[in-house]
Amino acid sequence: MLEIKHLVKIYEDGTQALNDINFKVDAGEFLVIIGLSGSGKSTLLRCINRLIEPTEGKIIWDGVDITSLDQNRLRQTRRQIGMIFQHFNLVKRSNVLTNVLSGRLGYVNPMKTLFYQFPSKDRQMAIDALKRVGILDQAYKRADELSGGQQQRVGVARALMQQPRMILADEPVASLDPVLAHNILGYLEKMNQEEGITVLCSLHYLDLVQRYASRVIGLRDGKIVYRGSKEDIVAMTDDQFREIYGEEAIRVSAGFQDKGKG
C-alpha cells in the first residue's frame, strides 16, 4: 500500500533529518515508529503527505509516487490520509464542530467553504464523528475551552471526517496523561481493526508500543536501526530498547504496563 524508498531529507540549515529510509507498509497495519526526539520521526511522517518536501527518494502510494504529484493530485492524495498531532493543532478560536468539519475541506466545493458553508450530509457526518469520540455535547464550544484529552478527540474526529485509508499520528499521546493515552490509542486501534484503516504512529513509551503495535520501526539519527514484528517488540528487553534510544535512555514505564495489558 505504502512504500518508502531511499527517503532523504536535508533541511536548509544542513541538518540531515532522514538518511536513506526504506520500508513498506501493508494495508491494515498498525505500524509504530519509535525513537528519541530529533531522531526524525516527525519529519518522516510529514514527508509522507509532503507537509515537508523530501530531498530525495520515493514515496509510493497505491503504485503512484507522491513526491512527483502536482498540487491538485497531492491534495486528492492528502485527503485520503488523516493526520493527528502531538499538540492537536486545532484552530483554537473556532468551535469544535468547525474544527471537525474542516476535515472535509478536501472533498467539498472550495468556493462554498470560504464562507464556512458545508453540505448537510457533511454536518451530519461531523455530528456522528463527535458522537463516536464521545464529545458531541461540546460541539459548539470553542476548541481552546476543551481539556487536552477532549482536544485530541476532536483531532481524531477531524481525521475521521476525511474517511481516510491511512492515518499518520505524530506522537498523538505525548501531551496527555496515561489514561487518556490509552483512550486515544484505543480509538486508533478500533479504526484500525474495524475499518481496516492503516495507522502509522510515532510513540515514545515502550509499554504503549508493546500494547498497540503490529510492527515496529526504530529510528535513530535519521536511520532505521530496528525493525520488529509484534512478537519481537513484546519480547523486547531493556537492552534492545537502550540500543534504539541511546545509552543514556532509561526505560520509562510510567505505569502503562498494567493498564495496557489489562
Partner: peptide, 13 residues
C-alpha cells in the same frame, strides 16, 4: 503554524 499544517494535511487548498 500547527493549525495550518493540520488544515493542509486534510487536502485543503
Amino acid at each position: 503554524p500547527g493549525p495550518i499544517e493540520a488544515i493542509q494535511a486534510t487536502g485543503a487548498t
